[in-house]
Simulated assay, not measured.
Amino acid sequence: MSLTVTSTGRPIRFSDTLERLGAHGGERLFLGEIVEAFGERAFGAVMLLFAIINMLPWPPGGTTLTGAPLLFLSAELAWGRDTLWLPHWVGRASVGRETFRKMSGRLMKLIRFSEALSKPRLFFLTGRLGQGLIGLACLVLSAILVLPVFGGNLIPAIAIGFFALGVMQRDGVAVLLGWITTGITGAVLIFAWTFVIAGFRLGLDWFGQVF
């Protein structure tokens, strides 16, 4: 999959496409419109959008809805699809265009900074096998996102964001950062689970001593 390019042969930047989507007419921006706008980069671009959304502070259960589309996208990537396919009802999901403009505007500096640092490199990490492994990792990370755990969305969402940037820009360094952040996610989960088990056992011991 090559990058979408302009008539001059230069790649169209992710940030430019976001601005164009926000500037188009119509009160609602549909997910299908976003997929069409990014073309061959739709996998990485749409996953990056949802990763950014999931990095925002949500109340418990909020990422159950915002993380669910990433399960679908990750499964397709893991399956080895070259192009992103969405059911019609998913493609009709929409957000207010003004809301989209405001949200993307607030994140534009960060997005452009990421674009400036990323470039095609270490291509073996974003090849067919690499993307399949990325899809599997994102599938697990997305499953973690949909769990109603307060504050549990940030690290998995960052990992998916790195993976998505790597797929979109063919940047193996971003993919490596994604794998590192995935490892951190696993370590945090193990620590949290150990802490919960220890607290549960302590509670049982206290209960036994009292009664």
Rank of each mutant, 00 (worst) to 15 (best):
R20I: 08
H88A: 12
L125A: 11
T17L: 01
L31P: 04
P120I: 03
P59R: 04
G80Y: 09
L21M: 07
L122D: 05
V46R: 03
A42C: 08
G96L: 03
W89S: 06
A75C: 01
L31H: 04
G80A: 10
L110E: 14
M47Q: 07
G22V: 13
A23S: 15
P59L: 10
T64E: 11
H88T: 06
M47K: 02
W58C: 01
S114E: 14
E98R: 11
G62R: 02
M55Q: 12
I12L: 13
V95T: 11
V90M: 14
G44P: 05
L48D: 01
I34H: 03
M103C: 04
R106M: 11
L117M: 15
L21K: 05
T83P: 00
T126V: 13
W85V: 12
A23Y: 13
R10S: 00
S114C: 15
S104H: 05
F50L: 02
T99I: 10
S94C: 10
F43C: 11
L122E: 05
K109S: 14
L21I: 08
S104P: 02
K102F: 05
S7H: 03
G62D: 08
P60M: 09
L31F: 12
E19S: 12
E98V: 13
L49E: 00
L77M: 15
F50D: 01
R81L: 15
G67N: 05
L84C: 02
S114M: 15
G9R: 00
G105N: 06
R28N: 11
A45H: 00
P87D: 06
F123S: 15
P69Y: 09
V95E: 06
E27W: 09
R10T: 00
G105T: 08
L110H: 12
E36H: 10
R112T: 07
A51C: 02
A116Y: 09
L73R: 11
M55T: 07
L56T: 13
F123L: 15
S118W: 01
S15A: 06
T126L: 08
R121Q: 11
